[in-house]
């Protein structure tokens, strides 16, 4: 299981929890597991999110491995200029 910190606005879809635990070995599985566990998150995840793993922000990657030892934070996708 990995711990995922969601941004505050997503609490509405997780029964008030800001940190949730899901079973995932990489970002693809993590996003899938979040959608499965909290269907309300699916449209938001589909619109595009970034995942920060130990401080490094992955904007697109689905393959990056995640584990219980990682700090995992779900972030809104940032756009650059």
């Amino acid at each position: 299981m990995v711990k995922v910190e969601l941004w505050a606005g997503l609490r509405a879809f997780t029964g008030g929890e800001r940190t949730v635990e899901v079973d995932a070995k990489n970002i693809r599985e993590l996003l899938q597991a979040l959608s499965d566990a909290y269907p309300g998150l699916k449209p938001i995840l589909d619109e595009g999110v970034s995942v920060a793993i130990d401080g490094e922000i992955f904007a697109d990657s689905l393959i990056e491995p995640v584990g219980p030892e990682n700090e995992i934070v779900l972030m809104q996708k940032i756009r650059g200029g």
């Binding site: 941004w7 505050a8 509405a12 938001i44 619109e47």
Partner: peptide, 18 residues
Amino acid sequence: EANVPPDHHKNITRRFEC
């Protein structure tokens, strides 16, 4: 967008909180 609460003004299209 999906996560904008219904009580928000209809010209607000996205709400983000952190």
